[in-house]
């Protein structure tokens, strides 16, 4: 069936709605004014210069990278092991655990953040790296469980039996046979878990104050306090990084299929 004019237009409209609001930050980041606006008299890179000269912005980028990398490492380890465990059970129990793992995605973030806040008060984890990393790691697990479970669905269980039969212990089998087989799923999960931590704002607003100041939070404060176009420059960089990661993910999947 050929797409009609109408479906084609609707399709393009949806794409525009999705993409155009994102692209607006590029011209804004190049404005020659000192407030959020489109360039009027010329293009200027001064906000990028400002960004890379600002200890506050650079500090936030560093914090976000650090938190993102550590949280991703934890999410990937826990999520992969969880997915493999569910795959082994391959019964209703496995299905139930997998469904439960999706709770952090399903529950509204603000509800989740409130719960974590109360909990972290008691554990004295408020405004600590450990606290933020733990939350980001836990909320990143679902992405890993989903991508790794998908990879495992296409993994031949006989390979695992073959490895055990050939004398490999359960751990050797995991490391030498199962993990290489599901690696694309693991990396996909890692990319999504990192992006999740990289732009997570709501929970950070609740559990961090002075010591931990991630990049999304710096942008949020910037918008609330003064409409500095440096934010647009930061947003451009964030979008670029996210896009690079997604393209990486896409290429890896294609390589696996090819």
């Amino acid at each position: 069936m050929n797409p009609t004019r109408l479906t084609r237009s609707v399709g393009w409209a949806v794409i525009c709605f999705l993409v155009l609001p994102i692209t607006i930050v590029f011209p804004v980041s190049l404005t020659d004014k000192r407030y959020l606006s489109l360039p009027e008299e010329g293009i200027s890179f001064k906000h990028y210069v400002n960004l890379f000269g600002s200890a506050e912005w650079l500090g936030s980028i560093g914090q976000s990278l650090y938190i993102g990398v550590v949280a991703t490492a934890i999410s990937v380890t826990a999520g992969t092991l969880c997915a493999i465990g569910c795959w082994r059970l391959s019964s209703r129990a496995g299905e139930a655990v997998r469904a439960m793992m999706l709770v952090p995605i399903v529950v509204p973030t603000i509800v989740y953040a409130l719960g974590i806040y109360r909990f972290w008060v008691d554990l004295r984890l408020l405004d600590t790296y450990t606290g933020v990393i733990l939350v980001h790691a836990v909320t990143g697990i679902p992405y890993v469980v989903v991508t790794v479970s998908t990879a495992l669905a296409g993994f031949d269980a006989r390979l695992e039996q073959a490895a055990r039969n050939l004398g490999a212990s359960a751990f050797q089998t995991l490391r030498r046979v199962v993990l290489p087989g599901i690696l694309p799923g693991v990396v996909s999960g890692a990319i999504f878990a990192f992006i999740h931590s990289w732009d997570e704002l709501v929970i950070v607003l609740f559990i961090a104050s002075r010591a931990v100041f991630t990049l999304p939070r710096r942008i949020w404060d910037g918008i609330n306090e003064h409409l500095d176009p440096t934010m647009a420059a930061v947003a451009t960089i964030m979008i670029a990084l996210t896009a690079v990661l997604l393209v990486l993910d896409l290429r890896m999947r294609r390589r696996k299929e090819g």
């Binding site: 073959a162 490895a163 050939l166 490999a168 212990s169």
Partner: peptide, 26 residues
């Protein structure tokens, strides 16, 4: 016990030589 599986269950990410080396490596 050696075993030849239905469909052979060769490790797809390893070469022929590495497949055969697997039981010795572990």
């Amino acid at each position: 016990f050696g075993m030849v599986f239905q469909g052979y269950a060769l490790f797809p990410h390893l070469t022929v030589a590495r497949n055969i080396a697997f039981p010795l490596e572990v």
